[in-house]
Simulated assay, not measured.
Amino acid sequence: MRTVVLVEGESDRVALETLAARRGRCLPAEGVAVVAMGGITNTRAFASRYGPRGAGMRLVGLYDVGEEDALRRGLAAAGLDPGPTADSLRALGFFGCSADLEDELVRAAGPDTVEAVIERVGESRSLRLLAQMPAQRGWTREAVLRRFLGCRSGRKARYAALLVEAMDLDRVPASLAAVLDAA
């Protein structure tokens, strides 16, 4: 292994591995491992294990923009210089999702495609019930879809693969494409 891609969770790992396969890449054969950290607060531990103070591997990663400060603190504690800006993180090989991975996937695939995937796997009724709940009635389609993807254990990872498989490759979220290109 020469490069480790640090990601927050399983859905990020699944999305990147699925996208790599769709692009004809075999990450393990290239010496690239995508490692789910179980949350951004674990950055220091994983960056210390794999980075310059540990195994000495090249690190790149994907994160939620709202977690940028936590990422920066973890990288700095592990001996990396994340710099003060998002540009400096990108130069280091770390790319932010605008809100989170699900937001990126829903926007890239589009609500119609997301709903078609949900229909195909037989969960349209659950989506309709969620959309009809009083708290969600004023939400946009995109917001309801994001909530749907995150409201049941394992659903984020399952749909990460399905949505990456369903989206046009020319609509891949920039952050996912960039981290794979950096790997």
Score class of each variant (00 low, 15 high):
R23K: 13
M57D: 02
A177F: 01
Q132L: 13
V121E: 12
R107D: 11
D168F: 06
V5D: 08
R107Q: 12
V32Y: 03
G39M: 09
Y63L: 07
R90T: 04
I118R: 10
D81E: 11
V179Q: 10
L16Y: 07
P134H: 11
F46S: 00
G79P: 01
L92E: 05
A47W: 02
A183N: 05
G38P: 01
A116E: 13
G61D: 07
R171E: 11
G150F: 13
P111G: 14
A21R: 15
G110H: 09
R2K: 12
R73F: 01
V32C: 06
Q132R: 15
R73P: 00
A161G: 15
G9R: 06
R152H: 12
N42T: 00
T18G: 04
P111H: 10
L80E: 05
G110D: 08
E68N: 02
G24M: 11
A36I: 02
M167I: 15
A109P: 11
S98H: 12
V35T: 13
Y159R: 11
A131S: 15
R72E: 02
L149K: 08
V60W: 10
G56F: 03
L89K: 07
V114H: 04
D112M: 04
A99I: 11
Y50H: 14
P111D: 13
L129Y: 04
V4T: 10
D112L: 09
F46V: 00
F94R: 12
V5F: 06
E165W: 02
G96Y: 03
E8P: 03
D81S: 02
A76H: 02
Q136D: 12
R147N: 12
R146L: 03
A143S: 14
D81R: 01
L163A: 11
E123K: 09
S175V: 14
V117G: 10
G51E: 05
D181N: 08
A143N: 13
R58F: 04
G150V: 13
R152Q: 14
A161F: 05
P134Q: 12
A70L: 12
E104V: 06
V60G: 08
G54R: 01
A76K: 03
A177R: 14
R49G: 00
R73H: 08
I40M: 15
R137E: 11
G38T: 02
P52M: 02
A47D: 04
A183P: 02
L89M: 11
E142L: 10
T140W: 02
T113G: 11
L59N: 07
E8G: 08
G110L: 06
I118T: 08
D112F: 06
G83H: 06
R73M: 01
E115P: 05
E17C: 07
L75W: 00
M57Y: 03
D112W: 03
L80I: 03
R22T: 12
V164C: 14
L169K: 08
T41D: 07
T43F: 00
A178Y: 04
S48I: 00
A76P: 00
D100W: 08
G138L: 09
M133F: 05
A78R: 00
G83S: 03
L130P: 06
V4N: 05
Y159F: 15
L16G: 09
E8K: 11
G56E: 01
A29K: 13
E123Y: 02
A161N: 07
A161Y: 03
E8N: 13
T41V: 10
G66M: 06
V14M: 07
L163E: 09
E8L: 06
P82M: 00
L180C: 08
A29G: 08
A135N: 06
P173R: 12
R72S: 14
D81W: 01
G51R: 08
A182P: 13
